[in-house]
Simulated scan of single mutants.
Amino acid sequence: MLQLLLPDARVELHLIAHLKQRFGDQDGLARHLRDSDHVFSHFFWLASFPGGNTLDLQRKLPRLRMFPVVVFPAFHPDMIYVGDIASLRLSALVHGPLGPSHSAIALFGFLEGLSIEETLGLYDGAVFERLGYHRAWDEGTAHLLMAAREVGFGLETELTRWQRRGCFMHDSNHPKLHVLADIARRLAVEAGLGPLDLAAEDYLPDLLVEEALWPVYPAIAAHYGVKAQPLFRAKAVRGRPPRLYNLKGFVTESFARYAQVPREQLGAERITAWRADPGIRALFASARGA
């Protein structure tokens, strides 16, 4: 993105997943970056890379400018990760039809012994309201703005602009290209670099489209006044068209995957909370035989 906006600059992109293999530890990374004119990074945790987190790296590289990770679950409030999430390892997560992302309703329906048809009846606006899905907008906004302020990169203006464009996320954790472009452009402007004034999506492909795409359920779309995206899309495999699922196909395939996984591995923070909530358990129980 920065290379597009700054065509005369030399730009290096380093993925967190590859840092250990390339630099060994954080000291090695700091040595590599110390002669750079500008260093931009979002926050990463100690478990991601030995030697410390981004704040430790910033102490070694005072010119490092942090920017926020954009997480916004309002359009996809049913999406969760399942397994050993605290390990920050993809291999420790349970994989379903869309890889590591799952429907909380589908998983809880399976664990509560509902049939596929009974579970499908729970994808309803009234149920979403009872589950707190409609609170995800206010909660997501507050969390994102707070996280942005904590790294000195307030997003109040940008978030208002993104919201006016409708759904600006591919899923809860993956923003669309124009969001990333706004952040990159602002980093360049505030560093005094004079980026090109252009719409990045007119010149670059959105590479995150190649990842799994989560739908915007019709009831969620209607609640927020955005376009519904009813199909689940698995990550594209090179040389083949991506696999698409309607809701019934996704829930059916999810149930089949869960049946092959030990129940003790089908854990998630939200599932634990729902299991402890008599009202939510009664809501799912009411779907049995409905």
Rank of each mutant, 00 (worst) to 15 (best):
M1I: 13
L2Y: 08
L5I: 11
L5V: 06
P7H: 03
V11C: 02
H14R: 12
L15M: 08
H18I: 14
F23G: 01
L29D: 04
R34G: 13
H42S: 05
F44A: 01
S48C: 12
T54I: 13
L57T: 07
L57K: 03
Q58S: 11
L64Y: 11
F67A: 11
F67E: 08
P68R: 01
P68W: 01
V69D: 14
V69S: 10
A74Y: 00
A92Q: 15
L93Q: 14
H102D: 09
I105Q: 02
A106W: 06
E112F: 05
G113Y: 08
L114G: 02
G121T: 08
G121S: 13
Y123K: 04
D124F: 03
G125K: 03
A126W: 12
E129T: 06
E129Y: 12
H134K: 12
E139P: 13
A142E: 12
A142F: 07
L145W: 09
F153C: 06
F153M: 06
G154W: 11
L155D: 01
T157K: 15
E158H: 13
R161D: 09
W162N: 00
G166E: 00
S172T: 12
N173R: 08
H178G: 02
V189G: 09
V189C: 15
G194H: 15
L198G: 02
D202N: 11
D202Q: 09
Y203I: 14
L208H: 07
L208E: 06
V209K: 09
V209I: 15
V216N: 00
A221Y: 00
V226R: 00
K227Y: 00
F232Y: 14
F232K: 01
A234N: 14
A234W: 08
A236V: 14
R238P: 12
P241T: 08
P242K: 04
P242M: 03
L244G: 12
Y245H: 11
N246S: 10
F255G: 03
Y258H: 11
V261Q: 05
G267K: 15
A273V: 09
R281I: 11
R281S: 05
L283T: 04
G289N: 12
